[in-house]
Design a protein around this nucleic acid. Structure first.
Lengths: 108, 108
DNA sequence: TCACTCCCATAGACTGTCTATGGATGAAGG
DNA sequence: CCTTCATCCATAGACAGTCTATGGGAGTGA
């Protein structure tokens, strides 16, 4: 087996959700997800930045450069209106999929 | 978006679960999952048979040929002891992952 | 005989994750 | 100063698991 920390297809959703609380830079997003999940989810940079690129291309987030809290250069990402809608859609589909899988798992 | 019917990595688990109730052939497994999930999950043959191959290689299922209920040739798959253990592990990891994601989704 | 469903299986495309790598920059301690 | 460490960005390539598309054999009913 593979130690897939982040289940396929859920990263974009979690990134969007994390940004829903306000703009953040990549590093901050990763930290936040790690922390909020009780250190269960570890977002690798090699997963995160491609994800952010996808979200940018699709117009679900916007980015701009600015100084970080520690006075380093940082790229702040923020949710767009389209991103907010997309988040809702993905949350719904996620719940629907989970419910379906649970039904399979609970079929005695 | 992509219409990913089956979330990554969950197919093996659902197949194992479906076989936990007794031996079935491939076609029957797909039907059962489709039915039990309330027609939400659609297992494509191009996903199912590679999955069954994986499970065979790993020793989690065993297979033997025999006539189907409709008198056609069919390959019956059944869970091994190792497969039963694996199913438990995957169910646990699944719940753990879902719980972590939910925490992210519920972080206001 | 023809169409249809059942049942098997593989090849190749595609997507999204991971590992590995590379770099810049500020803070802290020697 | 200078070294080390944490922060912060990003890409390339490997890899795994899903899907689409394809092909075929075999029993059933019209």
């Amino acid at each position: 087996m593979k130690r897939s920390e982040i289940p396929y297809g859920t990263l974009d959703m979690m990134v969007l959700k994390t940004l829903a609380a306000g703009p953040k830079h990549g590093y901050g997003i990763a930290q936040r997800i790690h922390q909020v999940s009780g250190s269960v989810l570890q977002v690798e940079e090699g997963s995160l930045y491609p994800a952010l690129q996808r979200l940018l291309v699709k117009g679900w987030v916007r980015a701009e450069w600015g100084p970080s809290e520690n006075n380093r250069r940082a790229r702040y990402y923020q949710l767009t209106a389209a991103g907010r809608k997309q988040l809702e859609i993905e949350e719904m589909e996620f719940e629907k999929a989970i419910a379906a899988i649970r039904q399979v798992l609970q079929s005695a």
